[in-house]
Lab assay of single mutants.
Amino acid sequence: ENVVSAPMPGKVLRVLVRVGDRVRVGQGLLVLEAMKMENEIPSPRDGVVKRILVKEGEIVDTGQPLIELG
């Protein structure tokens, strides 16, 4: 699984990683606000951040690609 998608609609509050960062399974990639709750979106696997597909403040839909892992 190379693309991390939004599990719910919401607003991207914070991106916690940068392109080139090594991440571990379960590590927070970004914080999504949904229904006034902050939800940290975890990495599904170990890898390297290849691309960040959203910006802070952006509104996303369920299933929208957020981050690509390499």
Rank of each mutant, 00 (worst) to 15 (best):
N2G: 07
V3Q: 09
V3N: 10
S5E: 04
S5R: 14
S5Y: 06
S5G: 06
A6H: 05
P7I: 06
M8I: 02
M8W: 05
P9W: 10
P9E: 08
P9C: 14
G10I: 00
K11T: 01
V12S: 10
V12C: 14
L13Y: 04
R14M: 04
R14N: 04
V15P: 04
V15D: 07
V15I: 09
L16G: 07
V17Q: 01
V17L: 10
R18V: 10
R18T: 01
V19G: 07
V19I: 01
G20S: 06
D21H: 14
D21G: 00
D21V: 13
D21N: 08
R22G: 13
R22T: 00
V23P: 06
R24D: 05
V25P: 08
V25S: 09
G26M: 09
Q27I: 02
Q27H: 03
Q27P: 04
G28A: 04
G28P: 02
L29N: 13
L29E: 15
L30K: 15
L32W: 03
L32R: 14
L32P: 15
L32F: 05
E33W: 06
A34M: 04
A34N: 02
A34E: 12
A34G: 10
M35Q: 02
M35I: 00
M35N: 01
M35W: 00
K36N: 12
M37A: 10
E38S: 10
I41N: 03
I41T: 06
I41Q: 03
S43F: 06
S43I: 10
S43M: 01
S43V: 13
P44R: 05
P44I: 07
R45T: 07
R45C: 14
D46V: 13
V48D: 06
V48M: 10
V48P: 07
V48R: 13
V49T: 01
V49K: 15
V49H: 14
V49L: 00
R51W: 02
I52F: 02
L53S: 03
V54E: 10
V54M: 02
K55S: 02
G57D: 02
G57A: 12
E58C: 14
I59K: 01
I59V: 00
I59R: 13
V60K: 03
V60W: 04
D61I: 03
D61Q: 07
T62W: 01
Q64R: 13
Q64F: 04
Q64N: 00
L66V: 07
L66A: 09
E68Q: 14
E68C: 14
E68M: 15
E68T: 15
L69M: 12
L69T: 10
G70D: 06
G70T: 07
